[in-house]
């Protein structure tokens, strides 16, 4: 897959970082404002897809990237499972028990485990969508060889 013209490349340089930051904002404010892990994760993946589409497939080392995304995806879902299992060890022994201190409702660090779930689900969603996209791109490269 070839890259696009220099205008598209420069615009992408300006925008991709902002898109990435917006995704992080959506994820970590998931328990305060609309949004959360699923929406923010797809926005994060979108910033990478923007870069790959604009710069072509030889800009990033795609095969290595794909190995990274699949690993992050599995690690993130593992962390979510461990956090959920930790509810079994504490107090009333319920799966998905939110036993961490709740804090003041409405502040950034509050609501116990909910922000952590949001962050790791966000990583998982971003890595999954990016792996699917990378798998398609790599498949096309290998076919055309």
């Amino acid at each position: 897959m070839k890259g696009m013209t220099v205008i598209v490349k420069k615009t992408t340089q300006l925008i991709a970082g902002l898109v990435f930051l917006y995704g992080i904002y959506i994820i970590i404010h998931g328990h305060l404002t609309p949004g959360g892990g699923f929406a923010g994760g797809v926005i994060l993946a979108g910033s990478f897809i923007l870069l790959i589409l604009a710069y072509g497939s030889d800009f990033l080392h795609l095969v290595r990237e794909e190995a990274g995304t699949t690993m992050y995806e599995n690690l993130a879902i593992l962390v979510v499972l461990v956090l959920a299992l930790s509810g079994l060890l504490a107090g009333t022994r319920v799966f998905f028990l939110n036993w961490a201190p709740k804090g003041v409702a409405g502040e950034l660090i509050s609501a116990g485990f909910l922000p952590l779930y949001n962050i790791f689900i966000g990583i998982e969603v971003a890595a999954s969508i990016l792996s699917i996209f990378l798998a398609l791109v790599i498949f096309k490269e290998e076919i055309s060889k």
């Binding site: 328990h31 404002t33 939110n98 709740k102 804090g103 609501a111």
Partner: peptide, 15 residues
């Protein structure tokens, strides 16, 4: 009070 999350949707999704 139950979930500590102001966004009800996140509270329902993860709690």
């Amino acid at each position: 009070e139950k979930t500590g999350s102001v966004n009800l949707v996140t509270g329902v999704l993860f709690d």
